[in-house]
Nucleic acid binder design. Structure first.
Lengths: 297, 297
DNA sequence: ATGATTATTCGAAAAAATCTGATAAATATT
DNA sequence: AATATTTATCAGATTTTTTCGAATAATCAT
């Protein structure tokens, strides 16, 4: 890494660029012009290029200075926001956890996975966003999210900054209404030949695994629907549109009402649930709780 | 404004939060743990709230600390980008001007307005983006643009940070193909009653002015087309789709080829061209040139 | 219990920032 | 044209901040 930038110097540079002159900036800062001028010289010396050039008895930004000004603007705007945020009372009372939930994730699972955070002794306020995997990862990187729940780990390219934790894995089973179940029950899984089947959409990792499982056994079902949203898939299944896969977790919920029956296990296929967070040593307390709870199981 | 944040302290805080402990951070920074610990205490004292709490023999972030960490991440990431940018050779050679051009602005006018920047003694590299007015203003605020050209000034709400300069004003005239001109020439402007007319779309300020001009005179033309893009409007006009308004600037270009004739002046209506930039004393050299050139006319 | 690890406190030393006084260049004023 | 004012900068003394060394208290592993 480069030797560190002196933000105090940068702040003076910023003030001068905004005020239009060393004198004016010094007046605003409550300092002498000599000091400000000197400190900026130090900055220029440190970075090895001029930020201002003298023109007449005033200063003009160099190209480097102009670019630097853009960065300085953003940096000190963030600094001011930070101070405002810190000045806000009623901050330390509740712990905030901003989590993003991948839209391919079953909602009931999301609740289970987040549960350990809510069980903490402190008051926790949960902020949930739903969205596409890539978009959520982006928000994670820009630090507007603390945690992302998804059905896959972060891509290898992001391993430098993001860390993925396998929270849970769950066998997958096929369910159906009693009418359909009766017809396709015997001889499972080969009975699925030409059976009406509902599948998750292609951006769901489970989709690939299921197709592979079917291929391996030479089963060619009649795919009557693809669903991005697991809840929607479930609803269609409940109406008898077709057989459908669901994580074993949900088995009791699904068969409990009596409207749906279990056909069988999709052997060798399991759904996986990951938590993805920024890679750092000191994790968010709530994130820690979620990961540790998963490890202990 | 609040008393200033010490970015050196914040940097230590950031290092500790990332490294996971004072000791580890100190080692990475090449300093003693005492120093780092002490400087962070100063920061906490300054902002008046704890960022870490001791847990066991380690540290845990408080809620305030967690929020601060998010800001620190962004701040120091920008700082590193700034340093990388400054380390880049071949920077001072050419002056970059990133300008956004509102999509309702005639392209030929945009060139005229930017011309003074290209006439500078320095080498200038122009980066042009086209887009909706609001979007461009947003990019201006986030400092990814130096300048926006539009047909209106920045809204009053943004007057604090943005400054608008009237670059030019230009009377508006009505043009048409010879065939149409012959028919609607005499008795202008009242001859426009039920005449086929091409107009700019509603997000163009000129549109409102033209309608007002027509209303005032009780003229109800037959509006055969609305165009967001001025060039497209011009092309349709050239093909004889209808009479069309254009800035007087372009009069000689338009009538020069002989394919189009001037019908008359739209009295009291003029198109205005504004440059909008971030409000600061030390402007971009190229922006200065553009504004000064306009003032001198 | 003992030894190792971690954060913190205190005072001295080192480094950095700031001020006072003075100089040079450019512009404005007379 | 001569003079005064404004602007940036230089040099040295002074103040403030940062840093380190030594010592202490708390926690964890063995």
């Amino acid at each position: 890494m480069l030797s560190d930038l002196n933000y105090k110097h940068l702040h003076y540079f910023w003030a001068v660029a905004r005020a239009g002159s060393v004198t004016a900036a010094a007046r605003q800062l409550g300092m002498t012009a000599q000091t400000v001028s000197g400190q900026i010289s130090r900055l220029e010396q440190h970075i090895g290029r001029a930020l201002f050039t003298q023109q007449g008895r005033g200063l003009v930004l160099t190209e480097a200075g102009r670019m630097a000004l853009g960065y300085a603007d953003r940096i000190f705007q963030l600094g001011e926001e930070l101070q405002e945020m810190l000045a806000d009372e009623q901050l330390d009372h509740t712990l905030r956890l901003s989590s993003g939930i991948s839209d391919v994730l079953p909602k009931s699972i999301a609740y289970r996975l987040l549960q350990p955070a809510l069980a903490l002794p402190q008051r926790v306020r949960l902020h949930c966003t739903e969205g596409a995997f890539d978009q959520l990862l982006h928000e994670l990187s820009s630090h507007s999210l603390d945690l992302v729940l998804a059905d896959r780990p972060a891509p290898a390219a992001a391993q430098q900054t993001l860390q993925s934790y396998l929270l849970a894995r769950c066998p997958v089973m096929i369910f159906a209404t009693p009418a359909l179940a009766e017809r396709y029950q015997s001889g499972f899984p080969h009975s699925l030949q030409r059976a009406p089947l509902l599948l998750p959409s292609r951006d769901n990792v489970l989709r690939g695994q299921l197709e592979h499982w079917l291929d391996e056994r030479g089963i060619r079902p009649d795919i009557v629907g693809e669903f991005k949203d697991g809840a929607l898939l479930h609803t269609f299944g409940e109406q008898g549109a077709g057989l459908f896969p669901a994580p074993a977790f949900a088995a009791s919920d699904i068969t409990g009402s009596g409207k749906l029956c279990l056909l069988g296990l999709v052997e060798g296929v399991e759904e996986q649930y990951y938590a993805i967070a920024n890679r750092r040593k000191l994790q968010h307390t709530a994130v820690q709780a979620i990961i540790q709870h998963a490890e202990s199981e």
